[in-house]
């Protein structure tokens, strides 16, 4: 798939090839302007690829087949919520999603501390975000696209968001979360996808990463032949190393992201 906004500019995506089965929560990372939101819009069918095609659940998204739209929910970074109560909004929109779970909705609303009588326009930005996350999860769509879902959420709400998301997702669903807030989702994702220079520069499951790479903090600079990537930090260096002696370390997604962004060759 190839995509560009302007013919005179270099393509935002050039021959991107990506396949993802269900049953995963994917963290989609990339520098500003790397095309994270654009990729989500392409998957949602809001814009069309200039070359090649995208297939989601055997549908071409840009055809906007209602059966495709019933199985996809996009939580955009910029929300659109009408001047209605939560109850009215649900009664208006839920019938259009055949698998909508009202009990699930009530449970998530309770987890987020929202009442069905609350008025959407009177909620704070963070509360509006919580509401739309609750609604999106309750649609039970096969594909959930979340663009910066934790923006505007306070620290306790981020914790609740992680809990709610993990509990709400079933095996036949796929969640793609695009975010800059790596820390907010590092414990819930099971795959990392990094966009860089119009390509998917890195795409690996977390289990595979921990099996192959180590993330360490050392006090002295290592030999370049030993480390895959080194980055100076406060009181020493952060390094990515190949796994030795089956020792597993916690993944430092920020470090991994910087390594990919600096064109480091990471062989898995």
């Amino acid at each position: 798939m190839t995509f560009f906004y302007d013919k005179k500019q270099p393509s935002l995506f050039q021959n991107v090839d990506f396949y993802q089965p269900t049953g995963n929560i994917i963290g989609l990372f990339g520098a500003n302007g790397a095309g994270k939101s654009t990729l989500l819009k392409l998957i949602a069918g809001l814009i069309r690829p200039k070359e090649g095609s995208i297939k989601v659940n055997d549908y071409l998204p840009s055809n906007r087949d209602p059966r495709f739209l019933q199985e996809i929910f996009l939580i955009d970074e910029e929300l659109f919520l009408p001047d209605l109560s939560i109850k009215r909004y649900i009664s208006m929109l839920a019938p259009l999603y055949p698998k909508f779970g009202h009990d699930k909705m009530n449970q998530i609303l309770a987890d987020f501390g929202l009442q069905s009588s609350d008025h959407l326009k009177k909620l704070s930005m963070g509360q509006q975000k919580k509401f739309i996350i609750a609604f999106g999860l309750s649609t039970n769509c096969k594909l959930l696209l979340l663009d910066e879902p934790t923006n505007g959420l306070d620290i306790p709400s981020k914790k609740i968001f992680r809990k709610v998301l993990v509990n709400a997702i079933e095996e036949d669903q796929l969640v793609i979360i695009s975010t800059h807030q790596v820390k907010d989702i590092e414990n819930i994702i099971d795959k990392i996808v990094i966009l860089d220079q119009g390509k998917i520069a890195f795409s690996e499951e977390l289990t595979q990463i921990t099996r192959k790479l180590q993330f360490k903090h050392v006090f002295e600079e290592m030999d370049k032949n030993d480390a895959i990537y080194t980055e100076k930090c406060f009181e020493g260096y952060k390094v990515i190393l190949p796994v030795e002696n089956q020792e597993e370390t916690a993944i430092d997604i920020e470090l991994l992201f910087n390594a990919v962004n600096n064109d480091t060759k990471i062989t898995m």
């Binding site: 809001l46 209602p66 996009l74 910029e78 659109f80």
Partner: peptide, 17 residues
């Protein structure tokens, strides 16, 4: 506007409907 356009185009109904 862009925000409501996204909501409208993503609404699970056909273009004809």
């Amino acid at each position: 506007n862009k925000r409501s356009s996204v909501a409208f185009l993503m609404l699970p109904a056909s273009v004809f409907e």
